[in-house]
Structure formats: structure tokens, C-alpha cells
Design a protein around this nucleic acid. Structure first.
Length: 507
RNA sequence: GGCCCGUUCGUCUAGGGGUUAGGACGUUAGAUUUUCAUUCUAGAAACAGGGGUUCGAUUCCCCUACGGGCUACCA
């Protein structure tokens, strides 16, 4: 049987897209592309109380930024829609009822208060074989009573009837055999009182109906896997069950536990793919994109969190990942997120991509920071000149901004103590030379600079640094004469004058 | 507490019955760069512990410890 590979990413639209979520999509996507299969986006919005406006669109935008475009999904079309579970609501009840009819599930009439009470009485209460007789459900109640309750429209849920003393096991693509004792698994709710399915029912029904062949999800789902396996069996679909892969979790860099958006805020790095503004509270959670990450780097670093190709290669493009990805090489253990290394990936990608291709993104960053660009051709040249010293795209503000406007801040502290009238007159003379000469190539500017220094009996090094700071505002940047050549004669002279003013005033 | 999963430098990891246990980030030292960064060279740094199995275990098995996840009418 060589059926077409079909995978899905099934986020619930409750807020920003976590980096762990993006990694899950990525692995799905890489696998699908490599196998020539389909990648489906399915929105799991079965919890109406947690639905957040705009979250779905946001998720799609994140995927788009990463270069991951679903083959099927809401607004993408496909033969297996609708792709929002809320729009499939009517579908689930029949399967739940079928399970009841077949004796694999039952109606339960306990109110949330009943359950709370029970749980506070019994510290380790589980709604399962040990206690279901004590609860109000179609197993403990008489047929007559159940009929009446149902007819009277009493709110109820449908729960799976998990058997006693069976072993459920399955072959995980990452962990090999995993097994569970059913006696320890509780009777999970399948259909809620509002008629919506829970995740447990929905994931099985939809994976079946959408012909999903491989299901990737986070390790946090492992404990509920037996419920899903049982459901596949009870619904009579065992032969169509997808192969499971439970991905290791991404952990906090310090302390312990799953990485959460709170950790990002606490430690000063993003956790979401893109900026997310909570529509209720207006609270902003920073994203990798806005912090200045390249999607190439983001995808690359995520892929390396739990996977490697067995060689020393660490830099992979999406194409290479698609080609080389293999589930066998996915790690079993969780990985602490290392933001330093994440930044390294970004720096590497900035170095790797040529200036011309970085232009649009740098332009965006500049725009957001009110840096006007008159000459876009000049921008590409500048980017190539400075990109080796940028870790984040936002670094271009300080590393390239001064090519297009006056430095916003000046730090003369390292030269002002040693400032002299001789040096001041050197710069007056040098700006006259700049004005006079016609060849403003870097080497020419440098030759003129050095011979003038010699003429004035000054050490080149003593005037080089002041010159640099006049031009760029601080002790950084590429070769000074490169800079002077690019910003041009007029601008160089203006900046020397301004610098002279500031230095003379300070002394 | 119960169940499930995991454990190689600080971090991400390679490896796998006999290796000088390899790489990367970070870190330290040096070189280059009349600035800063890049780049280059070198260094420090790991098989959680205890039992087996074996001529030999970091590698296979068991136990312990530790870490993580789950334990909702949330996903």
C-alpha cells in the first residue's frame, strides 16, 4: 500500500504562535515535501471560550513568513474541508453516538460542580472504571432514567469507556514502542455539553476523514495517546491510523520546564514567531521577525533543535532541510532553548545572503526607524559593506544608518581628552583637500589623509579615530575611507565641520 | 502521589562494546583588522550513580537518582 503522505498542523487559535509550534509545523512540512505529500492546515477551535480574534490569520502569516504554505486549509481550499473544526461541529456527534451504541462510550450527566466535589473528596480521583459506577451516567443509571434525562434535555457529555486491564501500545516514529495500562487511563470526555468535540474525538475523526498518514505533535500529547489509539480501534478505523511521532519539547534555558512566552519576557528574547498583540489586553509579545531575525535563520535554528543530519553541517536552507530531513534522526530528549546560538544562526545567515537580497528587509527596518533612503543602489553597497558586523536586522540601524543621515549619537570620549589645536587645524586642512580633489576613491582619500598627517607631523593613528567618530559617531564600522568615499565629498566635509565644532567646544 | 518519556562538555549535539569521546554556540588566550565586528589559531570543558552481561562498557540490561510531560466538558 503506497498511499500518498498527508500530514497536518492543527493549532488552536488562542494566541501567538510559539516557537515549539513552528518547529512542529516545520517537521510536518519537511516530511510532507520530501515525501511528495500534502501539508494540511487545520484549525482546532473547538474550545469556544478560548477563541481569540485574529489568531488564525496571525498563524497563517507566521507560516507564510517562514516560507511554509499549506496545500490545504481554511482559505487554501482542498477536498477535505471545512478545515475549521467549529465548522465541522455537526459531524462529530454521530461518531460519538456510534461509540455509545457500540458500547465504547457512554453519556455522563455529572455537572462540573459534581466533578469538583468528587475530586476534592478523593485526592486521586479519576473518572474511570474504578469510579464510574459512583457517578451519574448511562452505566450507573437505569435505562429509564437515562432516557428521561436525555429527553428532558439535561446537559450531558459523552465519555469514552476505557477498558480495564488491557495494554495499549503503539510504535512511535521517534520513541519506538510506547505502552500504557488502560486501567490507569481515565474516561476522557469526547463530546462536550455544548455539542463540540474535545480534542480527543476531533483529532481522531478529522485525521481519519482527512486521510492523514503521519501525525507529528509535541511530547505533551504522549499521555493521551492511548485514548486516541482506543478511539481508532473502536471506530473501526485501526487500519487507517496514522503513524505517530511525538516530538521532544523545547525547554526553558535556565530553570526548568517548557519554554513559555513568560520566559521570553523574563529573559529578554522572543518566543513567538511574530509580534502578537492580545486583542483583549493589548499586551504585546515580541516576535522573532520583529526582533530582526531572518526567516531562513529562524527555520534553520528550529530544525537544529532536536534534529541533525549526522554531519557537522549546521547551516541548512529550507531546500536542504527538505532533502535531508529524516525522522530517524530526531532526538528523543527535550532541548533547552539557547538564544545566543539562535543569534549566531541569524548572523550567519546575514553574512550568507547577499546585500541585494537583504535590501527589502533592511528598508523595512529603516522605515520603522525613520531613516530615509534616497538612493537604493547605494543601500545594497552599504549592506554588503557592513553586514558582517550585524547579528540582527535591527543592527543595520546603527551599522548602516550613518551612511544616510548624520550620526544620531556621538561618542568622542576616547579622543576628546587628547584633542589639540594641531589636530583641529589638520581637519580644517583635510576638508579643504576633500573639497579640492576630484577623485574620491577610498585609496585616494587615504593617501591624501596620510600625506597631510605627515606634513603636519601628526601620527596617522592620532587623527584616524577622530575622523571615524566624526563620520559615524563612534568607534565602529568598516574602513573609514570606504565610508568617506560612499557618503561623498559634501557630506564628509559637513560632518568634519560638525565634529570639529563639538570637539573644540568640549576642550 | 500515579502514569509516561528522557539523561554525552555550561548549552545544542555526533558517536557507539576496544576512540586522544568529534563538532557548534558560549567562554579563555593569541594573530589580523590604525575603530568595532568579521576571520584565523590555540585552550579549558562531558559520557548522572550503582549493579550486572562481557576479556573489555560511555555504548547492551536492571535499579536508583535527576530532569521533563500528563493527570480539565484546554488544546
Amino acid at each position: 500500500m503506497s498511499e500518498k503522505v498527508r500530514v497536518r498542523f492543527a493549532p488552536s487559535p488562542t494566541g501567538g504562535l510559539h516557537l515549539g509550534g513552528v518547529r512542529t509545523v516545520l517537521f510536518n512540512y519537511l516530511f510532507a515535501r520530501q515525501q511528495g505529500g500534502d501539508f494540511v492546515l487545520r484549525i482546532e477551535d473547538t474550545d469556544q471560550t478560548r477563541y481569540v480574534e485574529g489568531a488564525e490569520q496571525y498563524i497563517i502569516e507566521c507560516l507564510n513568513w517562514c516560507g511554509i504554505i499549506p496545500d490545504e486549509g481554511p482559505d487554501f481550499g482542498g477536498e477535505y474541508g471545512p478545515y475549521r473544526q467549529s465548522e465541522r461541529k455537526a459531524l462529530y456527534r454521530q461518531y460519538a453516538e456510534q461509540l455509545v451504541a457500540d458500547g465504547y462510550a457512554y453519556y455522563a450527566f455529572d455537572t462540573p460542580e459534581d466533578l469538583d466535589k468528587k475530586r476534592s473528596e478523593l485526592p486521586n480521583f479519576q473518572y474511570g472504571h474504578a469510579h464510574r459506577q459512583e457517578m451519574r451516567n448511562s452505566i450507573s443509571l437505569s435505562e429509564e432514567e437515562v432516557k428521561q434525562l436525555l429527553a428532558g434535555g439535561v446537559p450531558h457529555v459523552i465519555r469514552i469507556k476505557v477498558p480495564q486491564n488491557e495494554t495499549v501500545s503503539f510504535d512511535d516514529m521517534i520513541r519506538q514502542e510506547v505502552s500504557f495500562e488502560t486501567s490507569l487511563v481515565d474516561d476522557k470526555v469526547l463530546l462536550k455539553a455544548d455539542g463540540m468535540p474535545t480534542y480527543h474525538l476531533a483529532v481522531v475523526v478529522d485525521d481519519y476523514l482527512m486521510k492523514i498518514t503521519h501525525a507529528f505533535r509535541g511530547e505533551e500529547w504522549l499521555p493521551s495517546a492511548p485514548v486516541h489509539i482506543l478511539l481508532w480501534k473502536y471506530l473501526g478505523w485501526e487500519d487507517s491510523m496514522p503513524k505517530w511521532a511525538h516530538l521532544p519539547l523545547i525547554l526553558k534555558p535556565d530553570g526548568h520546564g517548557k519554554l513559555s512566552k513568560r520566559d521570553g519576557a523574563r529573559l529578554g528574547f522572543p518566543v513567538y514567531a511574530m509580534n502578537w498583540i492580545d486583542p483583549q489586553t493589548n499586551e504585546l509579545t515580541q516576535g522573532f521577525r520583529e526582533m530582526g531575525f531572518l526567516p531562513e535563520a529562524f527555520v534553520n535554528l528550529l530544525a537544529m533543535l532536536g534534529w541533525n543530519d549526522g554531519t557537522d553541517q549546521e547551516l541548512f536552507s529550507m531546500e536542504e532541510l527538505i532533502e535531508k530531513f529524516s525522522i530517524d534522526r530526531v532526538n528523543k530528549s527535550g532541548a533547552k532553548f539557547d538564544f545566543e546560538k539562535a543569534q549566531w544562526y541569524n548572523a550567519e545567515w546575514i553574512k550568507k545572503i547577499e546585500g541585494q537580497k537583504l535590501k527589502e528587509k533592511v528598508l523595512e527596518v529603516f522605515g520603522a526607524n525613520n531613516i530615509q533612503i534616497a538612493d537604493e543602489r547605494k543601500l545594497s553597497v552599504v549592506i554588503d559593506l557592513v553586514k558582517d558586523r550585524c547579528t540582527l536586522l535591527t543592527d543595520f540601524i546603527s551599522q548602516a544608518g550613518y551612511f544616510f543621515e548624520n550620526p544620531r549619537v556621538y561618542d568622542f570620549s576616547s579622543v576628546s581628552p587628547k584633542w589639540t589645536a594641531e589636530k583641529a587645524s589638520f581637519f580644517v586642512a583635510y576638508s579643504e583637500i576633500l573639497n579640492a580633489i576630484t577623485d574620491h576613491s577610498p585609496t585616494n582619500l587615504e593617501v591624501a589623509f596620510k600625506s597631510l598627517a605627515e606634513e603636519k607631523s601628526l601620527k596617522v593613528g592620532d587623527v584616524m579615530l577622530p575622523f571615524r567618530i566624526m563620520l559615524v559617531g563612534g568607534k565602529f564600522g568598516p574602513a573609514v575611507f570606504e565610508i568617506a568615499s560612499i557618503i561623498g565629498k559634501e557630506e564628509s566635509i559637513l560632518r568634519i565641520r560638525k565634529g570639529l565644532d563639538m570637539l573644540n567646544k568640549e576642550v
